[in-house]
Amino acid sequence: MHRGKGMKFVGDSRIPAERKPNIPKDYSEYPGKTEAFWPNFLLKEWMVGSVFLIGYLILTVVHESPLERKADPTDASYIPLPDWYFLFLYQLLKYKYAAGDYTLIGTMVMPGLAFGALLLAPWLDRGPERRPVKRPVATGLMLLALASVIYLTWESVVNHDWEKAEQQGKIVEVEIDKEAPGYKVYQKQTCIGCHGGNLSGGSGPSLIGTGLSAEEIANIAKNGTGAMPADQFKGTPEELKQLSEFIAGLEKK
């Protein structure tokens, strides 16, 4: 390329008038079987990408992305679960020395140390050796961290009640008629406190599609069942009838 005096430009711009040929470098003299990135290697990369994309699209079609029911901040019985890649942290916080008085260890110290060590790895592991076996400390610590993350994730998966998790988040497609006299009684008699504003359950179970008859429901309201104490219902018999018929009429769609 021409440099210095006598350079020609396009118009009054600073673009050189001399055109550079648009051809790739010659890689044949490079050592080994070096290849050009464009187009040789990129083609292979994109072919892998295409296969990956097909698999990915199949995944999205086969497994619909989950959506639970609308957030209800009053539902105190919901057991939260983070996305899977935070599960190990979630599990870590269940252990004695990472909870209670030691919460800080679980939430800050351990993740902080791990992340900090990762960030500063080039300065912690300064030797010239690159092979994993030649730097046993770095390799060992990483394997240890890896094993503990896998173990903690595994533990949290095994210990989680997936069936209940699915139940508690289900979208309930029942239109609750909140103007119905039965619902008014439901509100007034504080059933709402445990069974939720949509009768979908809270600390008490869901009342939708119980399969019980109105008489059975009336009986439970008066005498309790399971964890539900007796004498929860303090209204008139007329109200009890309205309530039990209202709840018995809630069918799962």
Binding site: W38, L42, W46, M47
Partner: peptide
């Protein structure tokens, strides 16, 4: 050409 084709597919 192949690259354009594969890129177009993606």
């Amino acid at each position: 050409y192949t690259l354009t084709g594969v890129g177009g597919f993606m």
